[in-house]
Simulated scan of single mutants.
Amino acid sequence: MPRRPFPVPDVDELEIHRKLSMFGLTETDVHRLSMARPTIRLHTDEIINSFYAHVSEYPELVQFIPDLNTLRGLRIAMKHYVDGFGENFETPEYFARQRRVGMVHEKIGIRPGWYMAAFTYLGMTIKSFVTREFTGSPAELAEMLESIQKICQLDATLAIETYHLSAMERIEGLMTQLERDQDEIRRIAQTDPLTGLLNRRYFLEKLEAEFHRCKNFGRPLCVMLLDLDNFKSINDRYGHPVGDDVLQATGQVLRENVRGTDWCGRIGGEELAIVLPECNLATANLIGDRIRLAIRALEFGEESTRFSPSVSIGLCGITYDFHESAAMLKLADDALYRAKKDGKNRVCVGGQPMTVVAGM
């Protein structure tokens, strides 16, 4: 898979003009650099050899050159840079190329200090070869070296600017990934792994929060307990993997048949539960019966031993007499027991709901 190119910030003409003005780069420097470039190109290999001989003395930099292929690639990239040293420095393409250098170095983990030290040495090496080969006057040499120094400063600045931009982008990416990981950890900590519903602890937390909110503001609230009928017999006859399939499918039925504001959880082996905020008993009864019929429509097992599970459901609505959510669970559990006792595969309601504020 090809490597995705680094996103380099756009460069406009105004920015280029301001940068060149900052470093005092003019058409005069274009001319001086064009005069120096043949000498630089003549000694490109020597400049590169000197640079990597220097770099090899520092383990902090050698670690980024793990093999010969990496070294070969780096030498090719540096040859392009040295051969075209300062060429077309006033163009957007040049700015983008030098900025990409900073992003690449940040990506592979070279710290700015080490990059600047190595780049400074490269500039010194280029200037030393130009000085050795120059045949003009000392004043002309000083001017040429000044232009070379300006380009080194420009290139270093462009690289370091995007080095920090890339670092910030990477940090933002890490923060985003951390948030995703935290969300996933939170989801795992709150979710029953088999059914995908809330686990018992988190379900009870949600019930407690909704209980106090609805009681304090006089809003309706219902709790539904569901228990798969004859579940032990299903495990014994068809095996636990089939029993797991039944539980998973039941969890899916619950998710598909409740409202977006409801909370579904698994609070025991085959016992599930739903918190229905802002829901009166009549509506909850309809939801419960819809769930019951959907579960009854499921089929499991081989062709000759196919079966459809059933579920018994106990419902309870909030009343003024309740002082804690556990009282609602107790009343819903009593209704569930009655549903089991009366023949299973049915919905039973326990308790009387409180009168809620107008509009419900």
Rank of each mutant, 00 (worst) to 15 (best):
A36E: 11
T39K: 07
I40V: 05
R41A: 00
L42V: 03
L42Y: 10
H43K: 00
H43F: 01
H43E: 04
T44N: 11
S50G: 01
S50K: 00
S50V: 04
S50I: 02
F51K: 00
A53C: 09
V55G: 10
S56V: 05
S56M: 09
S56N: 07
S56Q: 09
S56L: 07
E57R: 04
P59Y: 02
E60Y: 08
E60S: 14
L61N: 02
Q63G: 10
F64V: 11
I65S: 09
P66W: 03
P66K: 06
D67Q: 12
D67M: 12
L68T: 12
L68K: 06
L68P: 06
N69I: 00
N69S: 09
T70S: 12
T70C: 10
T70K: 06
T70Q: 05
L71Y: 09
L71S: 15
G73N: 15
L74M: 15
L74Q: 15
R75D: 15
A77E: 08
K79E: 15
H80W: 13
H80C: 13
Y81I: 08
Y81A: 14
V82A: 11
D83S: 12
D83E: 14
E87I: 03
E87N: 05
N88F: 15
F89H: 04
T91I: 06
T91M: 05
P92H: 12
E93Y: 06
E93V: 06
F95T: 05
F95P: 02
A96Q: 13
A96F: 05
A96W: 03
R97E: 13
Q98V: 07
Q98P: 04
V101Q: 03
V101W: 01
M103T: 04
M103A: 13
V104P: 02
H105K: 05
E106Q: 15
I108P: 05
I108Q: 10
G109S: 11
I110H: 11
R111S: 14
P112T: 05
G113T: 10
W114E: 11
W114P: 05
Y115P: 03
Y115L: 07
Y115R: 02
M116R: 02
A117C: 12
A118V: 03
F119A: 11
T120I: 05
L122Y: 00
G123Q: 13
G123L: 13
M124F: 03
T125V: 03
I126K: 07
I126P: 00
K127I: 10
K127Q: 14
K127N: 14
S128A: 14
F129E: 10
T131V: 10
T131F: 12
T131E: 15
R132Y: 00
E133A: 08
E133H: 06
F134M: 07
F134K: 05
T135P: 00
T135A: 11
T135F: 04
G136F: 04
S137W: 04
S137L: 05
S137T: 10
A139D: 07
A139Q: 02
E140K: 09
E140N: 13
L141M: 02
A142G: 06
A142I: 01
M144Y: 01
L145W: 08
L145M: 13
I148E: 02
